[in-house]
Structure formats: structure tokens, C-alpha cells
Design a protein around this nucleic acid. Structure first.
Lengths: 223, 223
DNA sequence: ACGATCCTGGACAGTCTTGTCCAGAGAAAA
DNA sequence: TTTTCTCTGGACAAGACTGTCCAGGATCGT
């Protein structure tokens, strides 16, 4: 075996790229495009060839940076874990004058793509349905987040029982919203924030908190 | 071309199946296994070979019943539409003495796999993220369902504004619950029903309604 | 200038999947 | 029984994807 035609060299094939020569990429480039594909196409769409094409680079150079596609997927999972849970925990721990402010703080996470990438979170969630290891990691993340929201309600004098029920309503509702990917302008959504507060705190909404959250969301929309 | 080895006949190959001869399947068999695979593996897992193997039938006989894989997927989508939306609309329209009973009726849909197959619904939802046509159909289904829940709250004297906010909390929360596929025994879940009612109706929960919903859920669990 | 190293392109091999074709088994009709 | 129709099995072809190998261009240090 090992009989093989001589590879076509650049100088013999000027159509390729005038003089730029090799295109250099970093492992981060591969990872970034992989994340995009995970979100837009699902884990099945994370293909070495597809990433290489988008980077304008040959497929085989991938194997210089990653041992295999499987290792890329592991890196992708680490990347998600490093991004998406900490901001929620932080925002639940933020000091708040009353429950309205606390809920509005929580709400900010799900409005600001820099704090929490909902698309990425749900792409990983979908992936987890077909992979036990992924599933375990996302279960742990959900447990952490729910515990943080529960603690938030408890700090505002709800009983343990009510705090947990309301935390679940709040977190599940927000996740349901993203799961359904409702096509609704951000304005309509924030306008209904007051209604939500009415629904799940059982207290009169603090209009200042609502206004602040609305302003924040609208500002995030402008970008 | 068209040179080809003579196919191995059954009588020449007794290893196959003693004497049962051809195994007959129906288009419904193909569809049922396809639905299972859609739920467990996602749309990418709906492969002609995989279905055929599970049916114990050769891959090529698939093409007698369906023009192509694409046509199977269309049939799958029609099948979902025929199953999953009507029960929700029906349960929202059920007569109810008060809002607690109404919400508990709604709750039943999401507890009874015969009324609403949440796994199938989310499998289609996931599919819809990669296919515009699927997306349009599921958007329409969501709109119908939300309208029904909103109307339910309105019949119990909530204002249009509050009815919509509470309908969204209720529907999104329930979807979020299924989207996250929380691993929690049904008992724990129904025990928290009262807490949910407390959270999103803004009224004192009707203990009889809660008890009835609990009993229903526990009975469904036994099967 | 020149050698060592980094990184990429293309060929190759192997697997998996879809879709087509046709011989012929089984069952139903004549 | 014989004929006809329905349905299945296996071969074939083509395409997509993964992973391997290696020649050699590009670049950096000396």
C-alpha cells in the first residue's frame, strides 16, 4: 500500500490563495466555532469538517490541536460549565431591599446574554438527553442553581417550604420560557414582568425594582 | 453493469429463521418505532436502518411503505400534531368550581402520559430548532395552548392582563419542568402542587382540588 | 542564511447512511 | 392448480464523516 499521488502544492495551484500562505488558527478558534455549531445545530452538528470549512482551514489540522472529536466535545462541556452557572449564583446572592428587587436581580441574568447564555445552556441540556455523563453534570448545575434561588427566598422571610416552591416556579418558568423560545419582543416581555412578580412572590411588586429591571432589559436590547 | 451475485435464499440459509418466512410489518410499525427513536435519540437518530433492525426486517422494505426518510418524518410530525394539543385544550375547557380546580385539571394533562406525551412534545420542540417548517407548527401549537389557559383564568374572573401573566407562568413553568426533566419522584412533585397553587393563583388553594389532583397523579404513577 | 520545529493540505482507509434495483418468497385471487 | 399481487432480502452505488499518514510550506531561533 502507501501508493499515493503527489499532493498538489500551493505554487502549482495559484487559484487557492494568492500569497497569504498558511492560515493559522488556535485551539480557541476551533472551540468557538464548535460552540456556535453546538447551539445552532446540536451536538450532531459539531463536525470536524464543518468547523474546518468555517475557519477556512483543512480538516486534518484539527488533529494537531485535539486528539479526536470526542476530546473536542469534552472541552466544549468544560467551557460551558465555566461560563453559565456562576453568574446565576452570584445574582441570587446580591443584596436586595425586598423580594421584588431580589427577583428582578435574578431576572437580569436571563436577559443579559453576557451573564447567562441561554442558547448554550439549552444546547447542552439537549445534548444531555443522549449522554449520561453530560446529564450528570447538568443535573448538578440545576441543583446548585435551585438551591441558590431557594436561599434567596428564605433570606426574604419565606418559610423553607414556600421558598422552595416559589424558587421552582421562578426557575422552571424562566427555563420554560427559554425552552419554548417564544418569539416575543423584549419590550412585551419586560412589560409583563410586573405580572410575573404579582404571580410568584405573593407580595405587592416594588415598582422601583420593576422599573429598574425594565430599563436594564431595554438597554440590553439596544445592542 | 448490473452484474450481481445471486441472492442467498432462505432455503439455502437455514440459519436465518427456521420456517417463519417473511416477517410482515405495517406502516404503523415503522412509524411507531420511528417515534420511539425520535424521543430517545432525537431526529438525527431516526434512521431507516435502525428502525428496520428493531423490527427485524430488512432496510429496503421501508421503501415500499414510505417514499423516503423525509416522508417518514412528515408522517411523524402529523402524528404528533394529532396527539398532543387537543387534550390540553380540552382540559382547559373543563368546567371547574374555582381556580384551584381549573389549575388542577390542567395539571392532570402533564401528569398523564395518555393525555399528553411530554417526551414527544419536547423531542419535536428540539427538532423544531433545526427546521423552520417544524418550528412554525410548534409555534402555532404553543399559541393555541396559551390562549386556552388564558381563557381559563379569565373565566375565573382574572383581568385580561393578569390572566395572560398567570397563564404564562403556569404553562412556561410546566414546560420548564419537563424541559429540565427533573429527576424527582412523582410524590414529591404532587406534594409541592399546593405550593405552586399558592404561588400562581393568588388565591387560597382549594384543598379538595389539591387532594383530587394528588390522588390522580399517584394513581397514574402506579401503572 | 539555514536548520529545527510548527502547522497545514491532500491522499487514503474505513465506517455509516440513504436510496435504487431486482429476484423471488408468500399469500390471495382466479 | 396456476396466476397475480404484495412485500422482503441482498447487492450495488454514492455520499458524508472520522481518523491516519506524510510531504512540505511557513516561521522562528541562531
Amino acid at each position: 500500500m502507501a501508493r499515493r499521488a503527489a499532493p498538489v502544492l500551493h505554487r502549482d495551484n495559484p487559484e487557492k490563495e494568492p500569497l497569504s500562505g498558511h492560515v493559522k488558527v488556535t485551539p480557541e478558534d476551533w472551540l468557538n466555532v464548535a460552540r456556535d455549531l453546538l447551539v445552532s445545530e446540536g451536538v450532531a452538528g459539531v463536525k470536524v469538517l464543518a468547523i474546518g470549512e468555517r475557519l477556512g482551514v483543512s480538516r486534518s489540522s484539527f488533529y494537531w490541536y485535539f486528539k479526536s472529536r470526542k476530546h473536542l466535545l469534552e472541552a466544549l462541556l468544560d467551557d460551558w460549565e465555566a461560563r453559565n452557572t456562576a453568574p446565576i449564583l452570584d445574582h441570587c446572592d446580591l443584596p436586595a431591599a425586598n423580594i421584588s428587587w431580589a427577583v428582578c436581580n435574578f431576572f437580569r441574568c436571563f436577559v443579559d446574554p453576557d451573564l447567562f447564555d441561554a442558547s448554550l445552556d439549552f444546547a447542552v441540556r439537549e445534548w444531555s438527553r443522549r449522554d449520561g455523563k453530560v446529564r450528570n453534570r447538568i443535573d448538578a448545575a440545576d441543583a446548585q442553581r435551585l438551591a441558590a434561588v431557594t436561599a434567596m427566598f428564605e433570606r426574604h422571610d419565606y418559610s423553607a417550604y414556600e421558598a422552595e416552591a416559589r424558587a421552582r416556579i421562578l426557575y422552571f418558568m424562566q427555563c420554560g420560557y427559554h425552552a419554548l423560545e417564544v418569539r416575543e419582543p423584549m419590550q412585551a416581555r419586560t412589560a409583563r414582568l410586573e405580572g410575573y412578580l404579582l404571580g410568584f412572590t405573593g407580595a405587592e411588586p416594588d415598582q422601583q425594582a420593576v422599573a429598574a429591571a425594565r430599563a436594564f432589559a431595554e438597554q440590553k436590547m439596544d445592542r
